[in-house]
């Protein structure tokens, strides 16, 4: 819904990104020529800057500039720059090992937890640099939540899973002392649990067994619980790393509906292997291809109907990957 037509409104904004795109483009071109062992069937071509230069209305939530990631000697992500619009679904697609998950984990600094990873570049959330050495990681990850590939609820009750984040952040106090002094937040917790579970479309299924262990839920329910847990800390951005890859078609479609619903209030960035899924649920799509480069980034319709890059077309039509 937001493409080049309206770019007059955000002229300054897009200009900035275009400039930075040009800068990075030079580096990227150099990088592409020297490296890349390509997946079988992938044709050689040069990435052009305008392929990834995606303009949209409205403010951008996340701005990534010249992001490089190395795992030891392996250059996993090469000079990626992109802007992610607010309250929309951005899909990241590409073959295995193309760096899309790495990219996603850069957005809330989860890659910090991997010792071998070295990250270079800039990611801004609402104009604030998250790779600043003095960034408050707790606050950052509260604002940018994450849902993982396989459902990973804690071995606790459903209620405790949801209220885990807020409790650890001190927003809900249920300790013995609090109960003794009568300022215990059970009511607040109950509200929060219900709201989060409703948002994650799980409330009807679990409302009468909130005290049961979350590991007793089915895989699809567990994943929605993880989404609810993520929503409970009230994030602005939700990163999803192939959230439906371990689920059956029915659970997958529930997650997809949920993602569409969530995009009304949140900025969702979703990694997926499933191109139909990307086409169904996303507003814009970024295609990463072998070697960790962002090849094309545009409206989902544009990417799937009329991609600029030959390689992207090959990938989308299933010639490789």
């Amino acid at each position: 819904m937001n493409n080049q037509i309206g770019d007059t409104d955000t002229e300054t904004d897009t200009n900035v990104s275009t400039d930075s795109g040009t800068d990075s483009g030079l580096g990227a071109t150099a990088g592409v020529e020297t490296s890349t062992t390509t997946t079988a069937g992938e044709s050689e071509e040069q990435v052009r800057d305008e392929w990834t230069d995606y303009r949209f209305d409205g403010p951008s939530k996340l701005t990534v500039e010249n992001l490089d990631v190395w795992y030891g000697d392996d250059h996993a992500l090469k000079d990626v720059s992109m802007e992610i619009p607010e309250k929309s679904v951005t899909a990241l697609i590409g073959p295995s090992g193309c760096g899309k998950s790495t990219y996603l984990r850069c957005l809330n600094r989860m890659n910090d937890r991997i010792k071998a990873a070295r990250i270079d570049g800039s990611v801004e959330l609402d104009g604030m640099e998250i790779y600043d050495p003095n960034t408050n990681l707790v606050e950052l990850r509260k604002r940018i939540g994450m849902v993982f590939q396989s459902p990973n609820p804690f071995p606790k009750s459903i209620r405790d899973n949801i209220s885990y984040g807020p409790r650890k952040h001190g927003e809900i106090n249920k300790g013995l002392l609090a109960r003794l002094f009568g300022n215990d937040d059970s009511e607040k917790e109950a509200e929060l649990v219900e709201r989060s579970l409703r948002q994650a479309a799980l409330w009807d299924e679990v409302q009468d067994r909130l005290d049961d262990n979350a590991l007793g839920l089915s895989g699809g329910q567990q994943q929605r619980l993880c989404i609810a847990r993520c929503l409970a800390v009230d994030p602005e951005v939700i990163l999803m790393d192939e959230p439906a890859s371990a689920l059956d078609p029915i659970a997958t479609s529930k997650i997809e509906d949920l993602v569409t619903e969530l995009a009304k209030d949140y900025t969702v960035v979703i990694v997926t292997h499933n191109m139909q899924q990307a086409a169904r649920i996303s507003d814009q799509t970024a295609v990463f291809l072998t070697g960790g480069e962002l090849v094309e980034y545009d409206d989902t319709d544009k990417i799937f109907e009329n991609p600029e890059s030959q390689r992207v077309e090959d990938y989308i039509t299933g010639k490789f990957g």
Binding site: V138, R141, F148, K168
Partner: peptide, 17 residues
């Protein structure tokens, strides 16, 4: 499992907690 640690970190909970 490391998944628990990842999940907790992604919620912004510090290491000790």
């Amino acid at each position: 499992p490391d998944e628990y640690r990842d999940a907790s970190a992604a919620l912004g909970v510090d290491k000790w907690k």
